[in-house]
């Protein structure tokens, strides 16, 4: 299980390669990456703020829970903070298990927790408006999270 919270960019392909190399018996690996979107064509950058200490603890807790719940051999979570430009990778998760369903479910579960329970906040700064606007949490994300406890 690896959890990293970092300012610097990371190489997604390299991380997937290393992740696979660290597994022994898994026949399935699922990866997800989140990317800065520029929906309206005017995004200057995204600023990601986090709560150092609590962020790492929360991600480790969710990773450990997903590992047990879905019988995962290995879990990787990387999440960036600071200034990110359109097209840059914000974060990734990777899960490895014997069978694909557990790997998919584990990644899905991790993402739902990470979105609504890991202390990150995103601000979008569009060109010509240096103050930016904080991204609102979505009801749909909270609903997805609750579905896991049903």
């Amino acid at each position: 299980m690896i959890v990293r919270v970092q300012n610097v960019a990371f190489d997604f392909s390299e991380e997937v390669k290393l992740f696979q190399a660290a597994t022994k018996y898994s026949g399935a690996i699922v990866t997800f990456s989140g990317i800065v979107r520029d929906v309206n064509g005017d995004l200057d950058y995204m600023l990601i703020e986090h709560y150092p200490g609590m962020t790492e603890n929360a991600l480790e807790k969710f990773s450990a829970a997903s590992k047990v719940k879905f019988d995962l051999e290995h879990v990787l979570v990387i999440h960036r903070f600071g200034v990110l430009r359109p097209g840059e990778i914000i974060m990734m998760v990777a899960t490895a298990s014997k069978h694909r369903k557990d790997a998919f479910s584990g990644a899905d579960y991790l993402m739902d927790y990470l979105k609504s329970r890991a202390p990150f906040w995103k601000k979008e700064v569009v060109l010509g408006q240096p103050d930016g606007a904080w991204v609102d949490a979505k009801v749909i994300d909270e609903t997805a999270l609750k579905a896991w406890s049903n």
């Binding site: 989140g34 709560y51 609590m54 999440h79 914000i90 974060m91 993402m111 990470l114 979105k115 609504s116 329970r117 890991a118 202390p119 990150f120 906040w121 995103k122 904080w134 991204v135 609102d136 949490a137 909270e142």
Partner: peptide
């Protein structure tokens, strides 16, 4: 004690 808005990770 930390105060913050609903989280928006991922």
């Amino acid at each position: 004690v930390a105060f913050f808005p609903p989280m928006t990770g991922g």
